[in-house]
Computed example of a mutant assay.
Amino acid sequence: MTEIIDVIGLALILAGALLCLTAAIGLLRFHDVPARLHAATKPQVLGLILIAIAIALMSRSWQVAAFLVPVILIQLATAPLSAHMVGRQAYRNGTLDERSLMVDELAESKETPPAAGG
């Protein structure tokens, strides 16, 4: 039974490492901000979760699993928030290709500055 758990753990580590590698390649290869944010958040977070599950399985310790739960939760909370903030700043700076947007929900915020009160 321990050999099966070890093989599952190794497969999860390999899958997680490949996802993290694809995230890194996506950051280098994609040209626009939304595509880079997608590459930085989605596969990287899933890769971290897979690696954390593998560590918890292979350590066979409830203390290690309990330690990894907050790590995963913090990653799930901070990755989308940071991607949102970077994407919004790219929009405000004008470094975002507005022609590629299907819906521009922030178009009216460009007309009236937030500090203008209107």
Rank of each mutant, 00 (worst) to 15 (best):
A83Y: 08
K110N: 05
R60F: 09
L101R: 00
A90Y: 02
Y91D: 05
F67P: 00
M102R: 15
A54Y: 00
E111D: 03
V64S: 07
A77W: 03
A65R: 11
R60S: 15
G87I: 03
I74V: 10
A65W: 04
L57G: 10
T95L: 11
V69G: 05
A65F: 14
L50N: 03
L76P: 00
A115F: 09
A66H: 03
R60M: 09
A107W: 03
D104M: 06
L106G: 13
S59P: 07
A56S: 15
Q89N: 12
P113Q: 08
S82T: 12
R99G: 03
A56M: 06
G87W: 02
S100N: 10
Y91H: 09
A107H: 11
D97M: 04
S61L: 02
R99W: 01
T95P: 00
W62L: 14
I74A: 07
Q75L: 11
P114N: 11
R88K: 09
I53G: 11
S109D: 15
I72K: 02
M85A: 15
A52N: 01
L57E: 08
G94Y: 03
Q63Y: 06
I55R: 10
E98M: 13
T112H: 10
L106D: 09
A79H: 06
S61T: 07
I49F: 14
G87Y: 03
P113N: 10
D97N: 14
P114V: 04
A56C: 15
L101P: 04
R60W: 13
L73E: 00
W62F: 14
L48A: 13
L76E: 02
A52R: 01
V71D: 13
P80S: 02
R92D: 10
L73M: 09
S59V: 07
G94D: 08
E111P: 00
A56N: 10
W62D: 15
A66N: 12
I72W: 00
A90K: 06
Q89S: 14
R60P: 03
A90G: 14
V86A: 15
A56H: 13
M102S: 11
H84I: 08
S61K: 01
N93M: 11
I49M: 13
L68Q: 03
A83M: 00
L76C: 04
Y91A: 01
A115W: 15
Q89G: 06
F67Y: 10
I74P: 03
T112D: 00
Q75W: 07
A115Y: 14
I53R: 05
G87K: 07
W62M: 13
E98A: 12
A77T: 10
L76A: 01
V71C: 12
L57Y: 08
R92S: 12
